[in-house]
Every structure is written in C-alpha cells, then in structure tokens.
Design a protein around this nucleic acid. Structure first.
Length: 631
DNA sequence: CTAGGGTTAG
C-alpha cells in the first residue's frame, strides 16, 4: 500500500504516467497482484491520461476477460475514453461488461452527452429499463442535459414527467437540470416555475435561471434575478457572469455598469470572469475599456488564455490598435496557443480592421485548418480595402476548397463588389446565392442597392428595393423596410412606394401604391369606385394633390394611382364575410386622405378596420379613429 | 463488505 501511495506522487505528468504504464504487469489470478494492479490502474485512470497512455494501459492489462469481472475499472476506463472524445470505444467497453448496473448505464449516457451524441444518449436511456435497470437521479440529470444540448423540448417534457412520476423532482441536481433545460428550450415560464418550487437552491440553480433569461434576450430579468440572488445569502460567481454574457450586447450603460460591479465584487481569481468582462465591453462598443482590462490581467496575476485573446482582439480592431494587436499575436505564439481556429480567425479580422492586409493574409496562409469564417474574414478584409478582385478570387478559392459559402460569405463578397464597383461580379454572386439555396436577406439587397446606386443604375436599384420591401413586408419586418428606405433616400432615390399588407386565410397579400398586378385587381378597383361613391354622400372629397405624393406623375389624373392601404381594404371587403374586422399594416405613415377614407369605410361597411403604420395603430370604428385624428 | 455516476458558463 505504501508503495502505491509513493508512486501516486509521480503521476502528475503525462510522461511519468506512460513510464508507469510500461511497468504494469498483466493481471494474473493471484488476488494480491490483481488488487495491486487494479488500484494502480484506478489511480492512473482517475488522472484522465491522454489517449496514447490510455490505449497502452487498456492493451496491457484490461483484457475483455478482466473487464467481465471488474465493472469498477470498466467505469473508470469509460470515463477516461469519453474525456478523450472516444465515445465509440467507450461503448465497446460498455458492451463488453456483462455484469451491468445503473452506474454503468449512467456513465455511458454521460459519455454520449459530453460528446454531443444526444440521440445515442436517449437510446441508452430508453433501453435501460427494459434490461431491468431503472433510471435514478443521476440518469435524469444526464438526459436533461441531453435535452438542453439538443434543444429538444419534447424529450425534455417526457423526462420531466418521468421525474415527477418517480418523485425525483425534489433533488437539487435534477431541479437545476430542469431549469437549464426549460431555459434552453425558451420555456421561461416553466423554468421559473421549477425554480420557484425547488425546496432548496444553490448557486447553480440561480445561475441556470439567470442563463435562461439571458439566453432569451431578457437581460433586465436576468439582472433582477442577480440582485435577488445577492439579496439572499448567495454570491454571484464567475459562472453567473458567464451566464449573463449572451444578453450583454448593445445594452444600456447602466446594465454594463451592473456587470462591472459584479465583476469588482467577485474574488477576481478566475480567468473566466475577466474574459466575460472583456467580452461585455467589446459587445457594448467600449473597446478602450476592454483593452485596458486585458492589460491589467497580468498585474492581477491572471494569465490570459485563448478566450481572453479572442475576446480582446476585436477591441484592437475597433481601436485600430495594431501595435497592441501584434503584441497579443506574439504573446499567443510564445504561449503556443496557435494553431487555434478561433484565435487565427480573430487575428485575420483584427489585422484587416487595422488595414494590415498583408498580416491578415499571412495568418490566413499559415492556417492548418480553415473554416467558413476564416475565408469570409479574408474576403471582407479585401473588401474593406477596396480590393474587390482579390476578394472575388478568395471567394472562388473557397468554393474550390469544397466549402459551401453561407449567407454571410455572400454578404462579404457582395460588399466587396460594391466597394470596388464590380457591377457584373455583384450581379453574378447575387444570382449564385440561388444555386446554394440561400434566400437573399436585407444585407444582400442592401449591397445590391448600394452597388447599383453607385454605378448609377437607379432603376435597377429601385427594382431590388421593391423586391426587398415585399419580402420584409410579408414577414412584418417593417424596421428593415425602413432601413432600406433610408439607404435609398441617402442615395438620392426619393420616390418610395407605399406598401400595405392584409391577411386572408393565413396568407398575406401585399399591395403596392397603384398596384395593378393583383389577380383581383379589376374587382378591387370597382369596389373602390363604389365605396368612393358612397363616401361622397358623406361629403368625402378625394385629395388628389397631397395624397398622391408617392406615385408617378402620369398616374395622378388616373384613379388607378391609389394608395396601397385603400387597395388592401377593398380587397379584404371583397374576400371576407360582412362584419369581419380588417387588419392592414403599412410601411409609411397613413396620409390624411386615406385616414378620412378609412373612417368613412368603417361606417359604411360596418367593419372594424385596424391599420398599423410605421408610427402607431389606428383603430377605425363607425366613422371614428382611435387616434382622434391626431398622429 | 459496497465504490463507482450528477447541474450552470467564457
């Protein structure tokens, strides 16, 4: 026994472990020797050796025969293999052990979960009871983690009902798992209910609930919970800060200050809290503060790690602090943190933002592995410097390398074309998106509008605008439509057509001002004529002059030049039963003429009409509007 | 003479 204790002192490094493994003799069925070997192996395995050492040890002593009568070592082996990212070998050992128990099942499930093989984890969970092993609290904690990891609320709910059925819900760890699962699955009410009903809560319970709010962009509630936590006896820790991070972007200065206070109150011994604070500053456009904090780490005895560097590099880019950036790059090399994909991508981005294209390219060229982000960063780098042809060349190389461009890669190449005035290339890539099954979004259209606007093709730019407006109007994303409108207005495109939407049978119908393309166009205009006739009896006078500011001159005399909301209302009247309320959304503010018309139409047709414009809601009922004619 | 297995996060 003494010998073993002495030996264990030397287990701290991989090399020593390997030496020790070589000295182990295969087990013979002599009880003392077997016990000695077992204890020795257990000690080695508990240190999580690297895969080489592990395999050596596995071959040397743990033959399958041996495993059959020793599940304890089997568990340790499985754990070690799982930690090396070898779930297949873990499973092999699991299958070899004939004398199973609940713990073995739990270790197997856990191995799958930790290696993100959630389906396999669920499968083992499903089969264990049929083999006579009932899940226990440890099992439930594992499968809850699998549910959170795979965002599968459905499985999570099933697990929850099993937990309730077997009365395991009062266990602290199970409760924490449930809170985390519901939070990940966006069920904050359920998460909060579990949290509130927990008989006992620890820091993890609070952090899980905070994480739930933060992951669902409810930063204020997350902060309220932190305050409440401080009000009780528990102190926030580095993990609390880390949980807040997803929501701590572009938030108020008060909120940033709160996180800073939390950071100051922590025992600042953990590199994680420093990294989170740096990231919070970066995500709230406070690069100077991020930089300063990074530089203070050393004096506080905290060694920056890969995450610290990846977090602070964007700040260097934002500040164009290339000297600092280079220093950090050197530090990363010295600490042998490179190669590292995230770090190298961050370096490319930093150098690009500092205008050091050569350095960016050097990092890119020296990379062992490149992902879509690496390529996209390089394309943007060239784009930012106006080297559109180089950007296009890198894009082509990326395609050749076998990677499929994603939506963001297209934004960067389109932006590069736009900055360099590469009209044909821009059109080519815009059309290419289709082949990759990517639907153009705001950013892509904005690039095209920009590109065409620069090239003087105002007409074509306008075409892209209308396309974009329709897409966003149908999705109800009026803010995006407004953003594009302001881009166009800056480019000198004054005439923005009004667009209205109205929903009918779960389908959104979109109308442009003066729209004549709708299949029911004829009936709609006829209906409008009838309505205008009746409205005139109430003293309505069409205000052609001011009302038609946003349609073409030649359309003015013609009654076809009608605002889109009138078309939408007429369409809804035609296609819905009498008395059905009509709901219209519009991308511009309702004009005076349409407002009067809507009031009268609500009276004549005895319909409730709701128009949401960019500014507010208008509820029209029996000839009056909720806005009291003030908007 | 019954271990062995568990939750949040940068």
């Amino acid at each position: 026994m003494k010998a073993i204790t002495t030996l264990s002192r030397y287990f701290s490094t991989g090399k020593q472990l390997q030496v020790l493994v070589s000295s182990i003799q295969p087990p013979k069925f002599v009880p003392q020797i077997a016990a000695f070997t077992e204890d020795l192996c257990a000690r080695i395995l508990n240190q999580y050796p690297d895969i080489k050492t592990l395999k050596k040890l596995h071959c040397k002593v743990l033959t399958d025969d041996y495993l059959r009568w020793n599940s304890s070592l089997g568990i340790k082996l499985m754990r070690a293999y799982s930690a090396c990212g070898e779930p297949v070998i873990t499973r092999h050992i699991f299958d070899e052990i004939t004398d199973k128990n609940v713990v073995l099942f739990n270790v197997m499930i856990r191995s799958y979960v930790n290696n993100h093989l959630y389906r396999d984890a669920f499968l083992v969970y499903k089969t264990m009871s049929s083999q006579g092993f009932d899940p226990d609290m440890y099992t439930y904690v594992c499968v809850l983690k699998a549910s959170s990891g795979s965002d599968s609320l459905w499985v999570g709910l099933q697990v929850h009902s099993a937990i309730l059925k077997f009365g395991m819900n009062s266990n602290l760890f199970v409760g924490n798992g449930l809170v985390a699962m519901y939070g990940k699955c966006k069920c904050l009410k359920e998460a909060r209910q579990v949290f509130d009903e927990m008989p006992r809560r620890d820091v993890v319970s609070w952090n899980s609930m905070v994480a739930g709010y933060a992951q669902n962009e409810r930063f204020n509630e997350a902060l309220d919970l932190c305050r409440e936590m401080e009000g009780s006896k528990l102190k926030p820790n580095a993990c609390t800060m880390a949980s807040l991070l997803p929501a701590a972007a572009n938030t108020s200065s008060d909120n940033v200050f709160y996180v800073k206070e939390m950071f100051m109150k922590l025992a600042k011994t953990s590199v994680i809290s420093w990294n989170v604070m740096i990231a919070v500053y970066v995500n709230n456009t406070m690069p100077k503060e991020a930089m300063d904090l990074y530089l203070q780490m050393d004096a506080n005895g905290i060694e920056p790690d890969v995450v610290s560097i990846v977090s602070v590099l964007p700040a260097c880019g934002d500040l164009s602090a290339v000297t600092q950036g280079r220093g950090i790059h050197e530090y990363a090399k010295r600490k042998k943190l490179i190669p590292n994909l995230l770090l190298e991508n961050a370096l490319i981005d930093m150098y690009a933002k500092c205008g050091c294209l050569r350095d960016a390219r050097a990092v890119f060229d020296q990379m062992q592995f490149r992902d879509i982000v690496s390529w996209t960063s390089m394309i943007s780098a060239y784009g930012m410097c106006g080297q559109g042809h180089d950007a296009v060349a890198v894009f082509a190389k990326m395609q050749n390398s076998g990677l499929s461009p994603d939506s963001i890669a297209f934004v960067s190449v389109l932006a590069a074309c736009s900055h360099a005035g590469l009209l044909d290339e821009g059109r080519y890539y815009f059309n290419l998106m289709h082949e990759y099954g990517i639907t153009p979004k705001l950013e892509h259209f904005a690039c095209m509008v920009d590109l065409l606007g620069r090239a003087g093709n105002i007409d074509e730019a306008y075409g892209y605008y209308v396309l974009l407006s329709n897409i966003y109007a149908k999705a109800g994303r009026w803010q995006d439509v407004a953003a594009i409108r302001s881009i166009l207005q800056r480019k000198g495109l004054k005439k923005i057509p009004g667009i209205s939407n109205v929903e009918l049978n779960d389908h959104v119908h979109t109308f442009l001002a003066g729209d004549q393309f709708h299949p029911q166009s004829k009936e709609i205009y006829e209906e409008l004529d009838v309505l205008v006739g009746k409205m005139k009896e109430f003293g309505y006078m069409p205000e052609t002059d001011s009302a038609l500011h946003d349609v073409e001159e030649e359309d003015k005399e013609c009654h076809l030049a009608v605002h889109s909301e009138k078309l939408a209302i007429a369409f809804a009247i035609l296609n819905t039963k009498p008395g059905t309320p009509i709901r219209v959304t519009k991308n511009l503010r309702v004009c005076g003429d349409c407002h009067v018309a809507a009031k009268l139409i609500s009276k004549i047709t005895k319909r409730e009409i709701v128009i949401r414009d960019t500014h507010r809601f208008h509820h029209f009922h029996d000839g009056a509007c909720s806005c009291g004619d003030y908007w």
